[in-house]
């Protein structure tokens, strides 16, 4: 199985668990997707901040539409699994759906970041302090467990 990692602007570090999931030496790609950045109101200063961060990461960087480029890059790299840091961003989730449709043979897997707190059941999100009352004990322990 050959992997490819798609690192997006919500997970810009080499210590993200997505790297541990992939075989050593798996190429990691960042796509500078102008349309998605614009739709997400990512201003110029934030783009500069992201670019500075990318400069340290030693990734393959491509400029264009992620839904077009990633299927092509998966084929070019001979990848049959695309690993992606999990994101709540509907724009990224939507792009993953389109990539799956473009390359049905490609397995697309989202990899969660290390948890802030691990809770036995889903907390009530109606107000912060309902969540905090359930999460506090774990949050004050190393690794949130």
């Amino acid at each position: 199985m050959a992997d490819l990692i798609w690192l997006h602007e919500g997970a810009l570090r080499r210590t993200h668990p997505v790297f541990a999931m992939a075989a050593p030496g798996t190429p990691a790609i960042f796509v500078w997707d102008r349309a998605r950045l614009a739709a997400g109101h990512v201003g110029v200063r934030r783009q500069l901040f992201i670019a500075e961060t990318l400069a340290e990461l030693e990734l393959e960087i491509h400029d264009g539409d992620a839904t077009v480029l990633l299927p092509q890059l998966a084929v070019a790299h001979g990848a049959d699994r695309l690993l992606v840091p999990a994101s709540p961003d509907p724009a990224i989730i939507g792009q993953l759906v389109m990539i799956r449709q473009a390359v049905p043979a490609l397995t697309v897997e989202q990899v969660a970041d290390t948890a802030f707190v691990t809770l036995s059941q889903e907390p009530d999100l109606a107000r912060f302090f309902r969540y905090w009352n359930k999460a506090r004990k774990a949050a004050l322990r190393p690794h949130g467990v």
């Binding site: 919500g10 810009l12 210590t15 802030f116 949050a139």
Partner: peptide, 23 residues
């Protein structure tokens, strides 16, 4: 934190290591 350059987990762990009592 916004761009996942640091994780919430590692920042919390670092903060805990800097105090005598988690509170």
């Amino acid at each position: 934190l916004r761009h996942g350059i640091l994780s919430l987990d590692e920042v919390r762990n670092h903060a805990l290591a800097k105090v005598a009592d988690p509170r």
